[in-house]
Design a protein around this nucleic acid. Structure first.
Lengths: 223, 223, 223, 223
DNA sequence: TATGAATGAGCATTCATTCAT
DNA sequence: AATGAATGAATGCTCATTCAT
C-alpha cells in the first residue's frame, strides 16, 4: 500500500465504502489539486490520471466542487481533531506539567500529521481563499471550536503562572504563527533544504517559550 | 483619484507610460485575481469590468499570464524595497540603537504598505504556489537578496548582544512568522474584528522581543 | 387504482404480462414524455420517477426509442379502433339513421377516450413530426385503413342525401379539423377555461352539420 | 438569393444588422429545428451546417434556447400581423362587403405566408408544447390581442346578419380549425399529394360558410 | 429479473487568443 | 491604439447503453 493510499485510508474513515475507482479518483484529484490548484485542474485530467472514464467521476461526485469538498472536509476534521477532544484540560493537567512539554507534544503531533498529509494541507490553504463553503466550514470549526479550546488552555497555563499575562488571542496568534511558520517553511517553502528537524523544533519552541514566559520583559530588558 | 488608482500609480513607476485603458485593465485584473484567483478569472470578465474590448487586453499583454506577471512583478519589488537599500547596516547604526526600535519601524512601515496594497499581496501569496515563474522570481529576490540582508542584520544585532545566539535562519523565520502572522490575521483572516492596532502591534513586538532577547533561556527555564 | 394505472391497464391488453416495475416505467415515461418531450427526457429521470434502476429500463426495452414505441403503438391502435371494425356500414345502417346522430356518438366516444388518455395523445401528436417509424405506422393505419373507412362512410351518407356532394377527402378533412379542433382546445390549449361541454359539443356539431348538409350553399345564400 | 434567404430577410426586419455568419446560423438552425426538433438538434450540428465555428453561435446567442427564441419571436409577430392592425373594422367595412370575401382574402394571405415560412411555422407549433416562454408569449399575443380582434370581427358580421348567432368563441374556434386544418394537411401532413389549391380553398370556404351562415339550423334540421 | 457502477461519446457552453477593420 | 467578430480547443457535465453481480 502506497503512502497515498495509506493517507486516504486514514483520512476517510468510511474508506471501506469507497469503490476502488473512487479511491483512485480521490488520489488523482488530491495530486492534481495540490499541484496546480482546483480551478486549473480539469476533470478529464483527473480521470486520465485515475484511469477511469470521465463520467465515473460524476457518478460519485455530482460536481467538480463536490469532489473538492469531499476531499477537504475530512481533512479539516482530522486536522483539528486533537483540539476538540472533551476535557482537554484534564489531559493537560495529567500529562503535561508545563506548557513547554505540552507545546512540544502538540507541535510534534501536528507536524507529523501535516507532513503525512501535505498535499491535502496544501489544497486546504490554497483553496480556502476561493471557496466560500470551505471558508464557512473553517470559520465555524476553527474560529469557534478550536479557538475556544486554545483560549481555555492559555488561561489554564496563565493561571499556573507559566504564560505571560496577555490577551489569549494575542498569545494564540503568535504561537500559531511560529508553529505554522515552521511547518510551512519546513515542508512547503524549503522542503529541499537541509533540516535537522529535532534541533530546529527545539529551537523554535525555545524562542516561543522565551517569548511567552512571564515576567521578563520589563525587568530584564528595560524596554 | 481613488485608492485603487493611487495604488497603481505608486506601484508602477512607469505609470505614466500606461494608457488610460491599460490602467483600467490592470485595476480590473487586480480586483478579480484577488477575489477569485488567476485561473478562475476570465479575460472577458476583466475586459467587461475594465470597460474595454477583449482584444485590447491582448494588445497590451501577450497572454493572460503576462498580465498577471505585469501586475505581480513590481509588487514584489516594492514589497522588498526597504530590505535592499545599500548600506542597510549604516542606517541601522545611525537610526536604530536597538532591535526593538528597528523592528517597530519595520513592522509599521511594511504593515502600512501591505495594508495599502492588500489585493496585490493577496494575489502574490495566492498565486505563488501555482506559478513557477513567480516562484522563481520570489526565490531569487527574497531568498537570496532579502534573506542575505536580514541575516546581516540579525548578526549585527547579535554582535551587539541584543539578539539571542541562535542560527540567524531560525531567528529570521520566527520573526517573519510572527510579523506576517499579525498582518495576515489583521487584514486577511479577521479584517472585520475589532483591532486596537497600536496596542496589538506593541504586544506582538513585546512577545517577539521577549523571545529573541538573549541570555534567558538556559538560566530561566533550565532547558 | 389510480387514473394512470387504469389508463395503462386499459391500453395494454397484454397488461398482465407487464411486471410491476414495467408498469411503473411506462407510467413514468408517459408522464415525462408528455411534459417535456421524448428528446428532452432522460432515461435516468424516468428511472428515478419510476423508482427502478436505470438498467431495469433497458432490460425491458432495448433502447429509449423502443420504450417510446411500446407506449405509442397501442395508443394508436386503440385510438382508431372504432373505425376499423368490419362492416361499419352495417352498424351505421342499424344504429344511426342520420349523420348527425352518428357524428355525435363518434365525437363523444372519441373525446372521452382522448380525454382519458390525454398524456398519450399529447405524446403521439408531439412526437409524430420527429419519429419516422411512428409517422410510417400512422400513415399506414390512418391514411390507409381509417381514411378508407371514413370515405365509405361519407359516401354512404352522401348516397342517402345527408351530406353535401363534395369530394369525401374534403369532407373528412373539414370534419376532422372541427372535431380535433374542439378536443385540442378543450383539453390541451385552454383546459383551465370554463367549459360547458355538452352545449359546446352541441354547438360544434351544429356548425359542422350546417356546413356539411347538402343543397344550401348556392341557393340559400347566393354567395 | 435563395428562398431561405428571402424568408430570413423578410422576417427579421433588422436583417441588415445580422452578420453574414449570423444569417447562416439562423438558416441552419431553422433547418435543423424544423426537421428534428429543438431538443434533438445539437449546436455543433448547427455550426457545421452553417459553416461557422461552434463558438460563433454563442457569441451571437447566449444560449441555444436564445437562438430558438430569436428565430421564433419575429415569426410569431409576423404571423399575427394582419390581425393587429388598428381599425381592422374600418378595413372590413371598406374592403369586404361580406364575410366570405374577407375569409377568402384572409385565408389566402395567411396560407401564403405560412407556405413561405413553413419551416418556421413547424418549429413554432412543434416547440410550443415544450417551451414555456414561447407559450407565454403566444398566449399573451394570440389569446389576448388576436382573439380580441377576431371576436370584434365576428360580432361585426353577426350584427350584419352574415354569421350565425352563436358565441364568438365557438365561431372562431371552428373557423380557425377548418383553416388551420387545411394548411396543415396541405403543407405538413400530405404535401406530396396532388392538390388543386384554388378549388380546394374554395370548397373549404364553402363548407365553412355554409356552417357559419345564419338562420338555417333550427328550421332545416329541427334541432 | 433487477441492479447500479462504469463507460465514452456527445452535449452546451466558455475560454484565451487572433485578426481584419 | 482599439475594437469585437471569429475561432476551435477545452471544459464540466449528461447521456443512453452495457455488463458483472
Amino acid at each position: 500500500m502506497s503512502q497515498q493510499e495509506k493517507m486516504i485510508e486514514e483520512l476517510f474513515h468510511n474508506a471501506e465504502e469507497l469503490t476502488e475507482k473512487q479511491k483512485k479518483i480521490v488520489a488523482a484529484a488530491i495530486d492534481s489539486f495540490a499541484e496546480k490548484g482546483f480551478a486549473a485542474t480539469s476533470t478529464s485530467e483527473i480521470a486520465k490520471k485515475a484511469g477511469v472514464a470521465e463520467g465515473t467521476i460524476f457518478r460519485h461526485y455530482k460536481t467538480k466542487k463536490d469532489l473538492l469538498l469531499a476531499i477537504v472536509a475530512p481533512t479539516m476534521a482530522k486536522m483539528i481533531a486533537p483540539f476538540v477532544i472533551k476535557d482537554l484540560n484534564k489531559v493537560l493537567n495529567k500529562e503535561f506539567e508545563n506548557v513547554e512539554e505540552f507545546l512540544k507534544a502538540m507541535i510534534e503531533n501536528r507536524a507529523q500529521f501535516l507532513k503525512n498529509n501535505m498535499p491535502l494541507f496544501r489544497i486546504l490553504i490554497q483553496e480556502i481563499p476561493f471557496q466560500s463553503e470551505m471558508r464557512e466550514q473553517f470559520k465555524e470549526h476553527i474560529a469557534q471550536k478550536v479557538f475556544e479550546r486554545l483560549r481555555e488552555m492559555v488561561e489554564h497555563y496563565q493561571a499556573k503562572g507559566q504564560i505571560i499575562e496577555m490577551p489569549p488571542v494575542t498569545v494564540i496568534r503568535v504561537a500559531a504563527s511560529v508553529i505554522l511558520g515552521y511547518i510551512l517553511a519546513r515542508y512547503l517553502l524549503v522542503p529541499e533544504g537541509e533540516w535537522d528537524d529535532d534541533r530546529e523544533i527545539e529551537r523554535t519552541i525555545q524562542l516561543l517559550m522565551n517569548g511567552l514566559s512571564p515576567g521578563k520583559y520589563k525587568e530584564d530588558l528595560n524596554l
